[in-house]
Simulated assay, not measured.
Amino acid sequence: MIQELSYVGFASPRFDEWREYGPNLLGAKLAGEGPDGAVRLAIDDVNYRIALHPGETDEFLYAGWGMANETDLRAYADQIGERGVVVHWGDESLCKEREVAELAWFCDPWGLRHELTWGKTATPNSFQPGRVMRGGFVTGDQGLGHVVFQVPSLVEANAFYADILGFRLSDRIINDHFNVRFYHINGRHHSLALAELPGHVGFNHLMLEYSSMDDLGRAIDLLRRNNTEIMQTLGRHTNDLMTSVYIGTPSSLQIELGYGGLVVDDLSWVARTYNKPSYWGHRYTRTAMESAPGIIRPIDQLP
């Protein structure tokens, strides 16, 4: 089974701006360059977890999902292959670029690329935050954070991500404005969320969780200095209890910066349905209302 969200990759014509944005605002460590000049960011002792590649347009490129070992990876690849997923194996150069021992990849029904890996390279005691921080990021056995995809049909998406890939439902938020399903693969309340946007597919946001509320507050204080807009104001979610703020980036996607997320236990967890996303806060700003909700494309305009 998949055990963690291990890494993510994007393309952007403004990729180089992440050299300042990542360390100075987020607190990530600048972790060198990829073979194509990609900006790499680390948030723990894993050599890098976020890659921003050069590109003519803003694009979501891939999400990397970590497996325990080579046996689990091969068994899982065989399992989903038997259920109709076309699985490709990465060559030595791709594994070297991603800094993993082994890699297999596939696409979801709308072309979103996912990579299955094991053996992501880490260097003990190597993480140094890019700005002054009281703590660090919540990673470990909870992985990088969470990602949210926009999909044209939640019924079809659930059939793929839950029934075939094995993501486990944490809960749902359904009202006149939201139809979102949240899935876990470890103790983090959700490593994946799927939001329905008929006729469209894409990437909404990446969540990074701080281990100290002070580091979240400091990030908010640094927004103006880093010329970064708030997309949703500080608030607390109903389902995962995360206190967070949503901010813009140089590359269309949003980042949710959070603190205090819920940890789930499969032995006792019961999925709920909520009718609102937040107890308080998370108000959309004018900038958010005038912007696209992430890196989104109509499904008839997929490359």
Rank of each mutant, 00 (worst) to 15 (best):
Y76D: 13
V270L: 09
T287D: 03
I295D: 08
I173N: 03
A101K: 10
F167W: 13
R134P: 00
H189M: 03
T123E: 14
V151F: 14
A11N: 05
L5Y: 01
Y246I: 02
L253N: 07
A193E: 06
R225M: 08
H114A: 06
D176Y: 00
A68E: 15
S211I: 02
R168Y: 00
M1I: 06
Q79A: 15
L144A: 06
Y183E: 00
L234Y: 06
G84R: 11
D240L: 12
L165P: 10
A11E: 14
D214V: 11
L94D: 11
Y274W: 15
D176Q: 12
P23Q: 13
R286W: 05
L41E: 09
P54N: 01
C95K: 11
E99G: 00
S93C: 01
E209C: 10
L267S: 13
I2W: 00
H237P: 00
L241A: 11
P303M: 03
V148R: 00
P23C: 14
L154C: 13
H189E: 04
A42M: 04
E99Y: 00
A219H: 08
Q232E: 14
S211R: 02
G55N: 09
R218I: 08
G27I: 09
S191M: 10
R40F: 07
G9A: 14
G34Y: 06
D44E: 12
S211L: 05
L103Q: 13
H53S: 11
R83Y: 04
N204S: 13
E82T: 12
R134M: 15
T117E: 02
P124R: 13
A157N: 04
I173Y: 01
E102V: 05
V8H: 04
A38K: 08
D45Q: 13
D240V: 11
D16H: 09
A104H: 07
E99L: 15
Y62I: 12
G145H: 08
V148C: 12
N204A: 12
S126A: 13
F160I: 07
Y62L: 12
F137E: 13
L94N: 06
V201K: 01
H88D: 02
Y48W: 15
P298M: 08
L30T: 04
L192G: 02
T287N: 07
Q79Y: 15
W18R: 01
A271K: 03
N226F: 00
V263A: 12
P298I: 10
E256R: 01
Q301A: 10
A271M: 05
Q142H: 09
R224N: 09
T57K: 12
L41K: 03
M289N: 12
E70T: 10
L103F: 04
M213P: 02
A28Q: 06
E70F: 07
N275G: 01
F15S: 05
E115C: 02
Y48T: 06
D141P: 01
R225A: 15
L73K: 02
V270E: 14
K29L: 08
G27T: 09
E82Q: 15
I164Y: 07
L262G: 04
H237G: 01
R188G: 03
I296A: 04
A101Q: 10
T243Y: 02
D240S: 09
R131D: 02
P13R: 05
Q3R: 15
L154P: 14
C107A: 12
K29H: 07
